[in-house]
């Protein structure tokens, strides 16, 4: 721990050595371009969201958030995330564990498949579920017979969200677990730990920051997902509208104040996520540095 703090001053000094520095005007120009770009494309829109949301005062703002439809959209979004994130947490840890600690046939294929939701357009992710569970889909008739609704209902939204957010946790954990190797787990087993104890006492503490980071990203995407959810939702007000979908509907109805009010909640979520992410990133980096440092000492 003390070592990683000691690294910081060294890292700063490196930027300040004259031999590796660009002249002052180059720095000023580059920084100005970067900041201007940042202001115009990121800060300005973000500010606009909040400005538009509050244009008609706090009263309207609160009223549009507490309207039954908006409230339903918020609840549905929270519900979806509450189901999708824990499931992907379990899937992600299981997949990363299998990939990082074991050799098995089809491992490459599994790694590729985990990335599939990232490489496919979200609209297609939604369509897959319509094709499977929709009225004309593979399981459509059977589902209709048993009076189970998946498409244009909450289960479809949850399924599409799970699919889209699947890679976040696994992607974050695989490199971390691969860097750490299986020796600590082996040591724990030899000392008599059961499989569950090995996971709980050695694997989990070593990956906790990476895991949290993955969960934060996963959650942000689960709440913000538009494309895939839009395809399977059916846009039934107060029933199958998540927050992003609700924003779209309000906007299309020229109800700008309400649209921006809901949007401001999503924007707020993004800001909180970024803040948390920065905090956790710092911890992950430290953990990774420690495992790299440990393996450097060893070799």
């Amino acid at each position: 721990m003390s070592a990683s703090i000691a690294l910081q001053p060294g890292a700063l000094e490196r930027y300040e050595t004259p031999s590796t520095c660009e002249p002052a005007w180059v720095r000023v120009v580059l920084i100005t371009i970067a900041l201007t770009f940042f202001a115009v494309f990121l800060l300005l829109p973000l500010g606009t969201v909040f400005a538009e949301a509050l244009r008609k005062g706090w009263g309207t703002y609160l009223a549009s958030l507490s309207s039954p439809d908006a409230w339903a959209a918020i609840r549905l979004t929270l519900l979806t995330a509450a189901i999708a994130v824990p499931l992907n947490l379990v899937f992600g840890v299981a997949a990363a564990w299998a990939i990082a600690k074991f050799e098995f046939p089809g491992k490459r294929l599994l790694i590729t498949l985990i990335d599939l939701p990232f490489s496919v357009s979200p609209v297609i992710s939604g369509l897959i579920y319509v094709l499977m569970f929709g009225a004309q889909g593979w399981f459509g008739p059977w589902l209709a017979e048993h009076d189970i609704r998946i498409i244009f209902a909450v289960p479809g939204i949850v399924l599409a969200t799970i699919f889209v957010t699947f890679p976040f946790v696994a992607r974050e954990l695989i490199p971390l677990m691969e860097a750490q190797g299986a020796e600590e787990e082996e040591a724990a087993v030899v000392l008599g730990a059961s499989g569950w104890q090995v996971f709980w006492h050695t694997t989990l503490p070593n990956i906790k920051w990476g895991l949290l980071y993955g969960v934060i990203l996963c959650n942000a995407r689960a709440m913000g997902e538009f494309g895939a959810v839009s395809v399977v939702s059916g846009h039934i007000r107060g029933k199958t509208n998540t927050m992003p979908l609700h924003v779209e509907i309000l906007y299309n109805e020229y109800n700008y104040a309400a649209a921006f009010a809901v949007a401001s909640l999503l924007a707020l979520l993004a800001i909180v996520t970024l803040g948390l992410k920065t905090l956790v990133e710092r911890q992950t980096r430290r953990q990774r540095q420690e495992s790299i440092k440990a393996s450097e000492i060893e070799s």
Partner: peptide
Amino acid sequence: FQHYALFRH
């Protein structure tokens, strides 16, 4: 183990 494999946390 050659590389100790101590529980780092």
